[in-house]
Nucleic acid binder design. Structure first.
Lengths: 191, 191
DNA sequence: CGGATTTCTTAAGATAGTTTAAGGTTATCC
DNA sequence: GGATAACCTTAAACTATCTTAAGAAATCCG
């Protein structure tokens, strides 16, 4: 079955016509490791659904340091939704961390689908609600926990990511330097 | 006009019947300063829309320290949506910072409205998308900026809140101690 | 397979933020 | 209107995290 249909059906059942409308507007794409699917300064034109592989969305500060705001692996959506909806230049880059396969929906196609399949408003409402809850927990971690606690929490919450990602990317996500993460890991090992 | 109708109409127009359905399921409530409308350990039963006043949602850590994850003032919604949808005990408290008026919708009523007014799925999708974007920017701040930068950013982004809130609440939101915020303010003043 | 690049680690010195304690100020509530 | 509680500030000692630098290990890609 088409991966997008399977994905949406985990939320609500779809009719045959609805499935056809959806698959007709999603285009498949292969992405190489390190390839960018969104570049800072450009408008985010697609919602991307990860079929295989792994991505990160990051911002670059004045010093040139990259800060990971989000990862996306199989079954996740990734986009700069601020830029996408406003049609304005993004402050983020989205990069494949592994060779990946994605399905992309363009803005006008997504809006078409929202209009013709009201169910999708509901589905995406639920998807983003869940992302919001996750993000809120991350904020709570950030304002209330030490880096070590945040790292342990990350390992628990995203074991599948912790395995695949270089520590340097995890450090960036946690808001610490790779050197300090290395120290944390040493401290944890030495118990 | 009913504040909720005015609020929803900033997103999409509503018919007279839709308005009636909505207003019939929202109940008005006055809340005193310091009163809790959600207590940790209890399930969040309502979406609350702030008509007048100001709220904070916070978690309490092992040491008893409170950590503000969100503020809500006039025109904002506040709820622990994780607890609300899962029907499980919340890890948060929601407290009025000022004497406030709110409109509350219970879970089954909100679900009824979602089902009978599909437009509301769209409206709440957009509302939460906007909250998500805000929250993502906050995460970026947290992982990439110093406390002073975060404070300045807060003043810029939420001037209406910065005026009304005690610094101690702002410090909690920024993830720093009130003492350190005091030092930051002193440093900024002395320029 | 092997050179190039990225990633991981260590450690010393520097900076950002916390803790504790105390005093002064302002707001709240009866 | 006055007692009480909340809020704000200061400063010194402490701890968490960053910076810099450099070498070792792992991974990628041709």
């Amino acid at each position: 079955m088409h991966p997008l249909i399977a994905h949406f059906q985990t939320y609500l059942p779809l009719s045959a016509e609805e499935m056809e409308l959806i698959t007709g507007r999603a285009s498949q794409r292969k992405v190489k490791r390190r390839q960018l699917i969104l570049r800072e300064g450009f408008t985010c034109k697609h919602y991307s659904f990860v079929v295989r592989g792994c991505f990160r969305m990051y911002a670059i500060d004045e010093k040139g340091t990259e800060h990971n705001v989000q990862f996306a692996a199989e079954g996740d959506w990734i986009a700069d939704i601020g830029s996408f909806h406003a049609g304005k230049p993004s402050g983020f880059c989205i990069e494949a961390i592994e060779p990946s396969d994605i399905l992309q929906i363009e803005q006008q196609d997504l809006y078409f689908l929202y209009t013709n399949i009201p169910k999708l408003d509901r589905i995406f409402k639920v998807i983003i609600e869940n992302k919001f809850i996750e993000l809120q927990n991350r904020v709570l971690q950030n304002i209330s926990s030490t880096a070590q606690q945040r790292y342990l929490h990350f390992l628990e919450q995203y074991p599948h990511l912790a395995n695949r990602l270089p520590n340097t990317q995890i450090a960036s996500y946690l808001g610490i330097t790779p050197e300090f993460l290395s120290k944390i890991r040493k401290d944890l090992a030495g118990q």
